[in-house]
């Protein structure tokens, strides 16, 4: 069992989607995340173990290398594609309740800002880390964040901004979330942000990269 979970983790980290995908070249012709996840479940490995010891291990590894500038955005995107291929097999177990997410994470780029690449990377790493992700998209109003929180109480929230002119909109959203859902964990991120600014506006954490967001939330809910 350990072997197949390790192979799943490797496929996720290396972005090996399925048997027909020619990349990475040294894994050409071998099963990918799609086939190995299906096989693990058929062998009787629990969906929770496939998630925790396969997908999460692979995504954590690539996420950490990304934080250390050892790999770059395309590597993370390829890992995410492999993870999505594996998730197809786990989805029915999440829907039936047999497998459980670590929690729910609501994320969006704040009002006035249309940048979404950073937000999407965080979404991918969070999903690979075992979280259900509710992605509200870009130019998201405070009201939309509150509506999502009302629909998914107990969720954590991530706010993204790339401009100094739009990061100021985070303060209003943080205050509104605090007023209605005071225990909500709120993470902020984006190029112009700092830990000091996050503290100033009342957020719980500043994430300098996707893995930082995941690490914070894993610690916060442990």
């Amino acid at each position: 069992m350990d072997d197949i979970l390790q192979r799943i983790a490797t496929c996720i980290e290396r972005g090996k989607v399925n048997a027909t995908s020619p990349y990475p070249p040294d894994l050409k012709g071998q099963d990918g995340a799609h086939e190995l996840t299906k096989a693990a479940l058929e062998m009787g490995v629990s969906p929770s173990d496939v998630l925790a010891q396969g997908l999460v291990v692979g995504m954590n590894s690539i996420g950490r290398k990304f934080s250390e500038n050892k790999v770059f955005v395309p590597d993370l995107l390829m890992a995410s594609k492999a993870m999505q291929a594996a998730m197809v097999h786990l989805k029915p177990f999440f829907e039936s309740g047999e497998a459980k997410h670590r929690g729910t994470f609501i994320i969006g780029t704040v009002q006035g800002d249309l940048h979404d690449i950073g937000k999407n990377l965080v979404s991918m790493v969070m999903e690979g880390g075992g979280w259900q992700v509710i992605d509200l998209g870009v130019d998201v109003s405070t009201e939309k964040f509150l509506d999502a929180l009302n629909a998914h109480p107990g969720s954590a929230v991530g706010l993204s901004a790339l401009l100094t002119t739009t990061m100021v909109n985070m303060e209003k959203t943080v205050a509104a979330v605090r007023a209605q859902h005071p225990d909500t964990k709120i993470i902020v991120g984006g190029a112009p942000l700092t830990a000091e600014y996050a503290k100033k506006i009342g957020a719980d954490a500043y994430a300098p990269d996707p893995q930082g967001a995941l690490d914070y939330l894993v610690g916060a809910v442990a």
């Binding site: 020619p22 990349y23 990475p24 070249p25 500038n69 955005v73 395309p74 390829m78």
Partner: peptide, 13 residues
């Protein structure tokens, strides 16, 4: 621009 040294991006990039 993506962070790679020229010629070092992995396939299929």
């Amino acid at each position: 621009a993506m962070g790679y040294e020229p010629g070092q991006a992995p396939e299929p990039v």
